[in-house]
């Protein structure tokens, strides 16, 4: 009786009802974990067999019998990575030239985009957060509120205007002919392809700030004890010095958490990179390359095993990052409440 009581998180009194509740709750959690893991497992399992095997096991075997792959092979993963020979591809797909996208290039683009966005956004947002949390200047709270209103803006609302900006139309009501900008590298007033189809174009809107990042860091900076920096200020240290030597070391864990979240968000971004790189396959990040590749797949008998290997490989970096930082991210939910 007493052990049963102690075992209950809420310290509720023991009763058949509560025990029944615990059983149901465990069942629910177990089901949830299976439902969470299974799709990933099935993607892996699909990638580990040939398309022919998918058909065979589908006709010959029951659902339970299909759980384990027959004759597992790594050919699909090597295929996606461009490491398979022509004979292997023919054997695996029954086709001589299976359509594919350049996974390694897309991967490289994704890494560049996500890295620049995470580093730039966190650093510049931290600078702004320092000013909002630690400095006093007229209009501070109004400016901060203005930043926060940015959180209300749905991305599609600024999608077209941002595209026009990426095309080199820098002013609101004006369109063509900015010869005065010819000195900007890559700018060509006549062709209007300024940053279109280029990685800086994908990165730019997320590089300098997001209202959420500024808000998240400001909340944290507000909680840092002021006595240390006041002593430093009286000793004549500049605000940059304080930012670098007092605030940054204390806020390091939170900045890493935010950086990881930003990295994953940038990695997952689809709509904006789609608009910027749709016609430029060699500049597409993984999400866009995969999405565009899917539209080129036939409706009947697509290359499922190749597609699922590519899909899993596209999620792999996120899964790896998650394995390293998972606990930190989960704990940050308690801290920030809402992302």
């Amino acid at each position: 009786m007493s052990t049963a009581l102690a075992g209950m998180a809420g310290g509720r009194a023991d009763s058949t009802g509560a025990r029944f509740g615990r059983g149901t709750a465990w069942l629910l959690l177990a089901l949830l974990i299976v439902a969470t893991i299974f799709p990933f497992y099935w993607t892996l399992r699909t990638g580990l067999v040939t398309n022919a095997s998918l058909f065979e096991s589908n006709t010959d075997k029951s659902v339970i019998e299909r759980i384990l792959p027959d004759d597992p092979t790594t050919v699909n993963f090597r295929r996606v990575l461009g490491q398979a020979t022509d004979e292997e591809i023919l054997e695996a797909t029954g086709r001589t030239n299976s359509a594919s996208f350049d996974y390694l290039t897309a991967m490289k683009n994704s890494v560049i985009i996500a890295t620049f966005i995470a580093v730039g956004q966190v650093f510049f947002s931290a600078l702004a957060a320092y000013a909002f949390a630690r400095l006093r200047f007229p209009g501070r709270d109004k400016l901060f509120f203005l930043y926060l209103t940015g959180m209300m803006i749905p991305p599609i609302f600024v999608l077209i205007p941002n595209l026009l900006l990426i095309l080199g139309d820098f002013w609101v009501f004006d369109a063509n002919g900015h010869e005065w900008l010819d000195w900007v590298p890559g700018y060509d007033a006549s062709s209007r392809t300024f940053l279109l189809g280029r990685l800086p174009g994908v990165i730019a809107p997320f590089f300098f700030m997001t209202p959420f990042a500024v808000f998240f860091l400001r909340q944290f900076f507000l909680g840092i004890n002021r006595s240390l920096e006041e002593a430093a200020l009286i000793d004549g240290a500049s605000h940059f010095r304080i930012f670098r030597s007092v605030i940054l070391p204390i806020a390091r864990p939170q900045m890493i958490t935010l950086g990881v979240l930003t990295y994953i968000t940038a990695w997952n971004e689809f709509l904006w990179p789609l608009v910027v790189t749709q016609q430029f396959p060699e500049k597409q990040p993984l999400t866009v390359a995969l999405g565009v590749f899917t539209t080129q797949q036939p409706g009947t008998q697509p290359d499922w095993s190749g597609l699922m290997s590519g899909t899993l490989l596209a999620a792999l970096p996120v899964i790896v990052i998650f394995m390293i930082f998972g606990k930190r991210l989960v704990d940050s939910i308690q801290f920030s409440g809402i992302k």
Partner: peptide
């Protein structure tokens, strides 16, 4: 584990 799906790209989830 429960948080994991939220971090996977929508495109990947849709395809799976």
């Amino acid at each position: 584990v429960i948080m994991l799906p939220y971090l996977i790209p929508n495109v990947v989830v849709a395809l799976i």
